[in-house]
Nucleic acid binder design. Sequence first.
DNA 1: CTAATTAATTAACATACATCAATTTACATT
DNA 2: AATGTAAATTGATGTATGTTAATTAATTAG
Lengths: 194, 194
Amino acid sequence: MINEFKKYLIEKIKITDEQFESISSGLKVKKFDKNQIIQYKGDQFKHGYFVGKGLLRSYSIDAKGKEHILQFAPENWLISDRNNMNNEPSEFFIDAIEQTEAILVPNHFMDDATAKVPSLQAMHNKLLNNSIRFMQKRINLLLSATAEERYLDFIKLYPNLTLRVPQWMIASYLGITPESLSRVRKELANKHFR
Amino acid sequence: MINEFKKYLIEKIKITDEQFESISSGLKVKKFDKNQIIQYKGDQFKHGYFVGKGLLRSYSIDAKGKEHILQFAPENWLISDRNNMNNEPSEFFIDAIEQTEAILVPNHFMDDATAKVPSLQAMHNKLLNNSIRFMQKRINLLLSATAEERYLDFIKLYPNLTLRVPQWMIASYLGITPESLSRVRKELANKHFR
DNA sequence: CTAATTAATTAACATACATCAATTTACATT
DNA sequence: AATGTAAATTGATGTATGTTAATTAATTAG
């Protein structure tokens, strides 16, 4: 499992084996049951999670008790609370959609890594940059696209998650109700049948 | 104007005067007319803009020709195209809402700065992190809040822009039509009158 | 200062999506 | 396999926001 994390860092920030060994001691793995809530809004932890096996999600709960999914984190995703990273309480919940094993990654792991090995900085910046790009695209879709268009984008972007995640969660990620998503799917099925 | 950029970097990444001097030579200032389009979708530039005076915006145009505003950039904002930073063509347009003077900031300015002065890296990461936090909040609002709630959030977050920017642009940022925003405002006025 | 644009408001009507409620289907637990 | 629970579907209806179009107000340009 630690090895998966190494692969992740090799791919994302081009870390070397030796560099990884020098910073990875002390990483702990933790298991979570399905439906276990890992982090509540308001919590302040000093680590994020690298998912080795399973599936996590982060989400908010609005005044009416409705959940809104910010992010899915399947295998080989690093999910960090951006508020915790800034030493502020979390705005979001995190829970396990499936039974999950994850590495607890200290919030300053990346800072430490790039401090220790400055050559990693450029790639790490690129990683953050991609994260911003991704979110810009999502904002743009929320501003401009219909429910159907957003769903089509989702299944293209996350073909695996589409099968793995309950529909009501996909709806929640898209910003529509499960009923609406069901209708969107029916519409799409009809279109492709004709 | 260069001095404003120095102040920005002192505040945001805690650069020192000497450090700034060592990397700021060669920065160019450019003026833009009101309504001038600075960057088209598909363009690939090697610089972003630090706004010293005036106001820029980035936006997309959808299939129906409707604009959707991703970001406003008033004085002391650094607006960089995240696709260009990754050597890919831009997904968005940038234009000047007001007559603007901006510093052309090379895409790799920050990378260079942190490479030259590794101690800046932590703060730079924090800056990017804040950018992500901000976008997470916006996504969450788009998923969960009504037009009225989003507008109230906007005027609280950007009291100056609320006065400076035409309403139809605020509507475009919020993801609603100008007509709807007008009605939202009327509603709010009524509520506070009663 | 006036004319010409552009923005904002308002009203009537349309529509995408939400809500509520009832079934049906799938999934878990024993 | 049987039973209970949660998810998905479907239908009827509601509502927030969109669309179109007309009017008024505000800006901009000559």
